[in-house]
């Protein structure tokens, strides 16, 4: 893109070979993961890559040993609710920060943005103590609520909403629509790409989350997937082949989501950071 003249010169077989080798390096660990997931227990201790025979029964075995579906459902429910709430609260705030005129708006916006700099670790221990007081330890609510608000999400959606033409609000205002109606019927539908981007980010971040569920959840049935998978890699026992089967099952949906939504995601990253 930078220089057409040189581009054609360089886009030769050599470049493609380099790219394929790099891609293989990126994919290599995943290949090992999938191959190991088909090994037997003894083969898993052998450094050779290929299993002697592909043991498909490892996958049903995972479901027998740990409540994998339950863990997955926990992860999906928590991440889903967090995503829904965070996108909604962020959209509300972003609307106020981008489309409404009120005194002190921008000062408050930058203050709110500044909270992104606060290290989450500082709040960790008191938030946990609050959860103890409110009796929210070991509840889904305790996982969902603290993650339902996000300065980053507000910032991202504000950037999107700033790009929507003003004339649309004004036309709706002349038709007598309330601020809420404008938000709900005009701005929200038009911010769909932004909402989807934020939804992907939020969902991914919470699907992976490990720290908070680790300290909050006590009942095994309520563990999300990242915490639950650790059963295969604990002091009590190592089952590398089953662990890899479980990891494969938790990673493959992500890869599928990613392949379908990557265009959205890349646009979102660029709008969120470069224009900001």
């Amino acid at each position: 893109m930078t220089d057409p003249a040189n581009q054609i010169q360089r886009s030769g077989p050599g470049l493609h070979t380099v790219m394929v080798v790099l891609s293989l390096l990126m994919v290599g660990p995943f290949v090992w993961m999938v191959l190991t997931s088909f090994k037997s227990f003894t083969e898993a201790a052998d450094p050779a890559w290929m299993p002697g025979a592909f043991r498909w029964e490892n996958y049903p075995e995972v479901f027998r040993v740990i409540p994998f579906l339950r863990f997955a459902a926990n992860s999906l429910v928590v991440a889903g609710w967090v995503t829904l709430l965070q996108v909604f609260t962020s959209a509300l705030a972003a609307y106020s920060f981008s489309r409404l005129e009120w005194p002190g708006r921008d000062r408050i916006f930058f203050l709110y943005l500044g909270t992104m700099m606060l290290p989450g670790l500082v709040m960790l221990i008191p938030t946990f103590q609050l959860m103890v007081r409110f009796g929210m330890v070991d509840t889904y609510l305790g996982l969902i609520l603290p993650a339902a608000f996000s300065a980053f999400g507000t910032f991202l959606l504000r950037q999107f909403m700033l790009g929507i033409p003003r004339a649309l609000d004004e036309a709706a205002e002349i038709d007598g629509a309330s601020k809420w109606r404008i938000f709900w019927d005009v701005i929200l539908p038009l911010s769909r790409p932004g909402l989807i981007t934020l939804a992907i980010f939020t969902f991914m971040g919470n699907y992976h989350s490990f720290f908070w569920p680790l300290v909050m959840m006590k009942t095994v049935e309520k563990f999300p997937l990242p915490v639950g998978l650790m059963f295969f890699d604990s002091e009590r026992g190592q089952a590398t082949h089953l662990l890899m089967a479980g990891v494969t099952m938790s990673v493959v949906p992500l890869i599928i989501i990613f392949i379908f939504l990557q265009r959205q995601l890349i646009r979102g990253i660029q709008i969120g950071a470069v224009k900001g």
Binding site: F30, L229, I259
Partner: peptide, 19 residues
């Protein structure tokens, strides 16, 4: 290639650390 380069970051989490 871009997709494959991005993949490790997208899946980075407990699963890949265990891996």
């Amino acid at each position: 290639y871009r997709t494959l380069f991005y993949l490790p970051h997208f899946t980075a989490g407990v699963a890949t650390f265990v891996l």
